[in-house]
């Protein structure tokens, strides 16, 4: 039951294959996607994925670096953050 949840936030111009590429990477690393949300905010495509990295094949550092590289390739900004920061900032 003990999940380790992180949010992957993707910001940039909308294009084909964003979800496919990121979810493909997550599948290869044995990371489960718990939830996905997306919409246009202030002319940006914004997507947030909630994922569980408890059984991931690599460290959070590696995931973070790989996704940043993937983001650069697709001209997107990808931010990886543990869910605790959102709990602290947005819930009392």
């Amino acid at each position: 039951m003990n999940k380790e949840l992180i949010f992957i936030t993707v910001i940039g111009k909308d294009r084909k294959g964003i979800v496919a590429k990121i979810s493909g990477y997550l599948y290869r690393k044995n990371i489960n996607i718990e939830d996905i949300m997306q919409k246009i905010v202030n002319n940006y495509f914004v997507m947030a994925m909630l994922v569980d990295i408890k059984d991931a094949k690599c460290s959070l550092e590696k995931i973070s670096k790989d996704l940043a590289t993937l983001g650069r390739e697709m001209n997107l900004t990808i931010q990886v953050q543990h869910e605790n920061i959102f709990k602290m900032m947005h819930r009392i």
Binding site: F7, E34, M37, A48, L50, Q81, E83, F86, M89, H90
Partner: peptide, 11 residues
């Protein structure tokens, strides 16, 4: 999801 997309985007 326990947070809205706006909250996640804000951070």
């Amino acid at each position: 999801m326990t947070f809205t997309l706006d909250e996640i985007y804000e951070t």
